[in-house]
């Protein structure tokens, strides 16, 4: 059984936590981070494209 299935049996006392809201900016930063982690390939392609562009620029200069 996976750990995440086991966590279905965990009941925390949520009342002991006072919510600590994040600012809009922090929320956006986290969202961006999550999206990057969910699509690692997309970022790799972007980086590859950027590297090729930089190498090409060096070769031309």
């Amino acid at each position: 059984m996976s750990l995440f299935k086991d966590l279905n049996d965990v009941k925390l006392d949520l009342s002991e936590f006072d919510e600590l809201p994040l600012s809009e900016y922090e929320q956006k930063r986290i969202l961006k981070d999550v999206r990057n982690k969910i699509h690692p390939k997309k970022q790799m392609k972007k980086r590859l494209g950027l590297s090729v562009a930089i190498i090409a620029a060096f070769m031309l200069s």
Binding site: L14, F17, D18, E19, L20, P21, L22, Q27, I30
Partner: peptide, 9 residues
């Protein structure tokens, strides 16, 4: 995020 942030902190 408010709740999760509180747990993490």
């Amino acid at each position: 995020s408010g709740l999760l942030n509180a747990i993490i902190r």
